[in-house]
């Protein structure tokens, strides 16, 4: 066999590997690369640190995956993070016990997600517009309520949620993993998950197959809102305060993670594992570049390049 045959076989093999594991391979390459470049990178401490830093956006991305799978988008998640933080901390500062304040925080996202869902379905306004409006409304409310000032008066045990560890693993990391296990099960094992794919793949066919498409859509926005709130609580706990300007531009990081993970913005195609890897890919990149002392301005450029590359690879894979 001539030499060319061998290389094309190797290429074929790589292609097949990539077909199967997709973006996971990219993450693996990234991990190997950074562990060569920096001795601090591949240490238990640092890896746990990456998961901790990524957990906030990764949790939101799990919910966003459902929304994008239906062909929608949720731009309000970043603002929800702030609003939830404010509501939760201010509730606690006015002496509400944590056991009530935390569910109240989750309710914020759930209720606003429900409202978004109603606008998207019953009033038939495109999700982009509804959630864009929700974004500025929530952000505005957070500033109005606090008059632009952070809320510091929180009970000391509140900070455990975001800063504590369980068997050396950061609590947000554990929560994130839990969220992904539940999200995976919901998406790939339950009737609801199947309906999400169906509605996103072909809404009219879904309706004619007997699926209540409105119900599915509303549920998806509730889920996205509630997970944004969960992240909002964790972030407030990490900062030990409610900050009206927290979560700024998170929606973009989250959408990037979902898209890098191979979910199609037109709906119907994508996986929850992909999103997890997508979020980690971006998280690892940021962390690695930090360790290498790359300036944050350069990092922004590189994250953008990675997003383009990931989507490009996905396009090539489909051909």
């Amino acid at each position: 066999m001539p030499e060319g045959q061998h290389t094309s076989n190797a290429l074929e093999r790589f292609k097949r590997l990539f077909d199967k594991f997709g973006i996971g391979i990219a993450l693996l390459i990234e991990l190997i690369l950074f562990s060569q470049l920096s001795e601090f990178f591949f240490t238990a401490d640092n890896i746990l640190n990456v998961t901790l830093q990524t957990s906030i956006t990764a949790i939101i991305a799990a919910g966003m995956t459902f929304v994008i799978l239906t062909g929608g988008i949720d731009l309000s998640v970043g603002a929800l993070v702030a609003l939830t933080g404010i509501v939760t901390t201010s509730a606690m500062s006015s002496a509400m016990p944590m056991s009530l304040a935390l569910p109240l925080g989750l309710l914020v996202g759930g209720v606003l997600g429900f409202i978004t869902g109603i606008f998207v379905t019953k009033l038939n306004i495109t999700p982009f517009i509804v959630t864009l409006a929700m974004m500025t409304i929530c952000r505005g409310l957070a500033f109005i309520y606090t008059d632009g000032r952070p809320i510091w008066e929180v009970p000391p045990e509140f900070s455990i949620l975001g800063n504590g560890r369980l068997l050396a693993i950061p609590i947000p990391t554990i929560i994130m993993l839990g969220v992904y296990v539940v999200a995976f099960t919901m998406l790939h094992r339950t009737r609801f998950g199947r309906y999400v794919y169906a509605v996103g793949g072909n809404k009219e066919a879904a309706r004619l197959a007997g699926i209540s498409t409105n119900k599915v859509l509303i549920q998806v926005y509730i889920l996205s809102g509630a997970l944004a709130s969960l992240s909002g609580i964790l972030l407030a706990s990490r900062m030990n305060s409610g900050q009206p300007n927290s979560g700024l531009m998170y929606e973009l990081d989250v959408i990037a993670a979902v898209v890098v993970g191979g979910t199609s913005l037109t709906g119907g195609r994508g996986t929850i594992v992909g999103t997890f890897i997508g979020a980690m890919l971006i998280g690892v990149l940021r962390n690695g570049l930090n360790l290498l002392n790359v300036s944050s301005y350069v990092q922004m450029v590189m994250v953008g390049v990675v997003i383009l590359l990931a989507v490009l690879l996905d396009q090539l894979r489909k051909k």
Binding site: A198, G201, A205, A206, L208, G268
Partner: peptide
């Protein structure tokens, strides 16, 4: 194709 099936499923 448009009203009956889910091509990605």
């Amino acid at each position: 194709n448009h009203f009956g099936l889910f091509m990605q499923l």
